[in-house]
Amino acid sequence: MTPAEVAVLTTLTPDHTLTAAQIQQASALTTWRTRNALAQLESRGLIVPSHLRGRWRITPRGRSALAVKGRRFR
């Protein structure tokens, strides 16, 4: 897991539902790094798009991954 992916998961924890722009601002990432992290996390099932268009939320699997792998980035 990359530092950008950890930043995105941390921003979405515990149960935030945010747009890509809100995630980018809260995590202090570039637009490219935010979008790339979102795509990678979604492909692994760690985040999912919400019913509100253009918003993302963390999955239980994403919370587990952050708890295990996120420790090395803190």
Rank of each mutant, 00 (worst) to 15 (best):
L9F: 06
E42Y: 10
P3V: 03
R55H: 11
E5V: 06
G70L: 02
Q22Y: 13
R71I: 03
R44P: 11
L41T: 13
G70I: 03
Q25M: 12
A26N: 14
R33C: 02
A7S: 10
A26F: 09
S27Y: 00
P49C: 03
G70F: 01
E42L: 15
F73I: 02
R33N: 11
L29I: 09
T17C: 11
T31P: 14
T10N: 09
R57W: 12
P60L: 04
F73H: 07
R53P: 13
T13Q: 08
L52K: 01
H51Y: 05
A20L: 12
T59R: 06
I47F: 06
A26R: 13
S27N: 03
A20Q: 14
P49Q: 11
G62M: 01
I58V: 13
R71L: 01
V68P: 03
G54Y: 08
V8P: 13
A65E: 10
R55I: 02
T13I: 01
R71H: 00
A39K: 13
S43L: 11
W32M: 07
L66A: 00
F73S: 01
G70S: 01
S50L: 09
A21I: 15
M1W: 04
R55F: 00
L18M: 15
G62K: 00
H51N: 10
H51F: 08
L46Y: 13
R71Y: 00
Q22I: 11
S43W: 05
L29F: 03
V6K: 04
Q24K: 14
L66P: 05
A65L: 04
P49T: 12
G54A: 09
T2K: 05
L9Y: 02
Q40R: 10
A7I: 04
T31H: 12
F73K: 00
A4R: 00
R63W: 08
W56A: 08
L41R: 09
A67K: 05
A37L: 06
L46H: 12
A21W: 14
T17N: 09
